[in-house]
Amino acid sequence: MQKEQDNRSEVLVDVQNVSKKFCKNLKKSMIYGFTDLFRIKKTNKIRLRKDEFWALQDVSLSLKRGEMLAILGLNGAGKTTLIRLITKTFPVSSGRINLFGRIVTIYEKNRALNKFYSGRENIKVKCALFQMSRKETMEKIDTILNFAEIKEFADAPFGTYSTGMKARINFAIAFYSNPDIIIIDEGFATSDRKILEKYIAIIRENSHKFGVIIISHNQVIIKELANKIVILKKGKVFYNSYNVSKGLQIYNSYKNNTKTS
């Protein structure tokens, strides 16, 4: 019990005053990228150049083991940018992100998987991408196939799988790769109610083992899973609290006001 309490206070993601800028104009973005190549020295002063804008500004948040953090925001609020900064896919423009533990992602699309290769082969690649050793992968492969309910199609090309099968395999790989941090960015969007309940049940049952960050437009999932909420508004943190139901109320009223205006 004591160990579990200690675990629950363990910080897994620490986002400190993070800002990220992008460029609206593709050609300018490439030109800036080219000039930045030769800018080796780091500078603390960050200014916006023509056509650049702040996608995120001074964002701070944390995720501890056992926490399930829902990030809400209207389209363009910076949710996906924040996720890409946390997964270290994008470098931050300023600020700092510290990660402690193995991070896995569940997205709506399976971009890393190869349609010409079998489900089994794709599991091996994706497990390796999530830093699992060969031994760990071989130990888990049958569990993954069973959970995803695709054992009899394990050696069929991935391209022949249905959207539901792809989504299940994606979830199963992430869940069984011993993650510390699970990022779900609309990862359940293609799942039916029955499979969704299965995901929610298994995450809740094992919630003490990891921290979860969820982005979803489905508020049922958020109500069922989240115990912490952050609302982003135009790239800034607008609300950050453990009171999920109040957070949802605030978000819904903000969303409705935006629609009316």
């Binding site: 991070i103 896995v104 971009r111 890393a112 999530f130």
Partner: peptide, 9 residues
């Protein structure tokens, strides 16, 4: 790119 978008390596 396809893999990097899933998780950075």
């Amino acid at each position: 790119g396809r893999m990097l978008i899933e998780v950075s390596f």
